[in-house]
């Protein structure tokens, strides 16, 4: 596959799956404001997905639409980072997953504002402003709940222990990115991992949370290897369009 298509799918699949998981909080979050916040962020992420899929579909040139890419690919064809497919479990897990994602999403969007590819650059210049609001919220809540009651601290630490190994998948770089950096379509991405480390070190410290030190890392999502939860997410997300493929509103 054209590295540009692969890269756009890696980005778009990651925002789509998180958007889907986030939208599931609508009607279930512990307080109304957070219910609305999660639902609204899901909208932002799904809107960004649409832009990524448009670039991918155009580069691919096979006449597929963003909806085709979202609803008519199988698990192994999805290239999202494994972090975003981890289950909602509880509010602590959802929030920690969001924060770790945001801590990567902001620096990569900032980097992509200098992409040599016009549509990617425009996408990033638009999305980065939304992403700044996302991390403003998740960072604030991580600190409040991490450095909160004994119970909230324990829940946040448990979520961090469970999810930290998956953060590496966000920053996994292979020949796809290297090829795009080589032709100037992407800026060098090493600074994204540096920014992620700096952001999480400061914020998790303020939240009195300890980064797990065992060095375990789980990767593979960006090459189509997924965890056991992924099939359930796709089943729910794709069920209607697959049952009624030509249905129109």
């Amino acid at each position: 596959m054209d590295p540009l298509v692969t890269f756009c799918l890696r980005m778009g699949d990651t925002t789509l799956i998180l958007g889907q998981q986030t939208a599931a909080w609508c009607g279930h979050a512990p307080v109304l404001e957070e219910d609305i916040a999660f639902a609204n962020m899901g909208l932002d992420l799904i809107g960004q997905t649409q832009l990524w899929y448009e670039i991918a579909a155009q580069a691919e040139g096979q006449g597929r639409t963003p909806d085709d890419l979202a609803f008519f690919r199988t698990e192994r064809q999805f290239l999202n980072a494994q972090l975003v497919e981890r289950p909602n479990v509880d509010f602590a897990h959802a929030l920690m997953r969001q924060y770790l994602f945001d801590a990567w999403h902001l620096p990569i969007q900032e980097a992509l504002c200098e992409s040599g590819h016009q549509a990617i650059r425009e996408l990033a210049q638009k999305s980065v402003k939304e992403v700044r609001y996302h991390i403003d919220r998740s960072r604030d809540l991580i600190v409040r709940l991490g450095d909160g009651s004994e119970e909230s601290h324990a829940m946040m630490q448990g979520a961090l222990d469970a999810l930290w190994p998956y953060a590496a998948d966000l920053m996994a770089i292979d020949a796809v990115e290297q090829a795009l950096v080589g032709i100037g379509m992407l800026p060098p991405l090493d600074r994204v991992a540096c920014a992620f480390e700096a952001e999480t070190a400061v914020t998790l410290d303020r939240a009195t949370l300890a980064i797990p030190g065992n060095g375990h890392a789980r990767t593979g999502g960006r090459t189509g290897i997924h965890t056991e939860t992924m099939g359930y997410i796709l089943a729910e997300m794709q069920q209607i369009p697959r049952s009624f493929p030509d249905a129109r509103w």
Binding site: D44, I46, G47, Q48, Q50
Partner: peptide, 8 residues
């Protein structure tokens, strides 16, 4: 121009 990328 769209306001937010995902604005319904």
């Amino acid at each position: 121009t769209p306001t937010y990328a995902g604005c319904p």
